[in-house]
């Protein structure tokens, strides 16, 4: 099902510190967006705010999903509507095995396959899950992600290496088959082989029913997952957007170009406000 996430003039802060300062963004299923920007520009904040992290407060603007107020939903409701966040730093959960965890979160979506995450058939919810099919699918997805099947019986992320945690995020994404995924610096800290596997996972879902926002510092993941749209974020908002050619411009000219181009303007505006 086609979905449209619309972000308008979004403002958010953590504590007293404003981070997002009027951000606009449209993501539709079928589209891959890349979000780039220097450290501290607010990229991870956007990811956390969209998922509903309790430490951030939305102070203005709106987010809608197919016209419905998205910010009014709880985190779990957002997930069940089809949003997925691949965490920059996945936490370790003691005593909860990968196998049990995935089974539970797939059960919540009411089907044994993890497809049709939102709306549609609710009759299969609860105990109606096909466990054999689930295990088969999990094993297949782990093979695809080049992960050892022994992970099924390990506590989620506990003692995993950085690369294993990132693969586990993408494995969960494959199993849940979300309609919109945010990948928050999933490429950070990965060697080229791991990066290829992670990219392969994203590309597998690519299609008319899947949209993604890939947050990254680096160009290299975008040679593996070619984006349809590229956005540059600076000081809490998107300062410019374009196609994949924007990645190349950024590669040659660097973030300093963005700072010169948009930072000065920003500061001038701030000065204008102050003088008023």
């Amino acid at each position: 099902m086609a979905q449209h996430l619309q972000v308008r003039n979004l403002q958010a802060s953590i504590g007293d510190k404003p981070i997002l300062s009027g951000l606009d963004l449209d993501i539709r299923t079928g589209e891959i967006h890349a979000l780039m920007g220097p450290n501290g520009s607010g990229k991870s904040t956007l990811a956390n705010v969209l998922m509903g992290h309790p430490s951030y407060q939305v102070t203005g603007g709106s987010v809608t999903l197919d016209g419905e107020d998205y910010l009014a939903l709880r985190t779990s409701e957002r997930a069940l509507k089809g949003l997925f966040l691949a965490f920059q730093y996945p936490v370790e959960i003691a005593g909860v095995t990968v196998g049990k965890f995935l089974k539970r979160v797939i059960e919540l979506r009411g089907t044994g396959t993890g497809k049709s995450a939102s709306g549609g058939d609710k009759s299969a919810s609860g105990g109606g899950m096909n466990v054999t099919a689930y295990i088969k699918r999990l094993r297949e997805a782990m093979d695809f992600m080049e992960m050892d099947q022994a992970f099924i019986n390990r506590s989620l992320n506990q003692g995993f290496s950085g690369g294993e945690k990132k693969r586990m995020e993408v494995l969960q994404m494959l199993m849940l088959s979300p309609s919109l995924a945010i990948l928050d610096e999933t490429d950070s800290g990965l060697d080229i082989d791991a990066l290829k596997v992670v990219s392969k996972g994203v590309n597998r879902l690519r299609g008319p029913d899947f949209g993604a926002l890939i947050i990254t510092h680096y160009q290299r993941i975008l040679t593996q997952i070619v984006p349809d749209y590229v956005h540059i974020m600076y000081k809490g908002r998107i300062v410019t957007s374009g196609g994949k050619e924007l990645v190349e411009t950024l590669e040659t000219r660097g973030y300093d170009w963005i700072k010169q181009q948009y930072g000065i303007e920003e500061e001038a505006n701030e000065g204008a406000v102050a003088r008023r």
């Binding site: 992290h53 985190t75 779990s76 959960i93 003691a94 965890f101 539970r104 979506r109």
Partner: peptide, 25 residues
């Protein structure tokens, strides 16, 4: 940890229960 579990679709009560059961596991 609660936020992580909720981001996968567990309600707050379910996420708490999963963490507490995991703690005793």
């Amino acid at each position: 940890e609660l936020f992580y579990l909720e981001s996968r679709g567990l309600s707050e009560a379910d996420a708490r229960e999963m963490l507490i059961v995991g703690y005793f596991e």
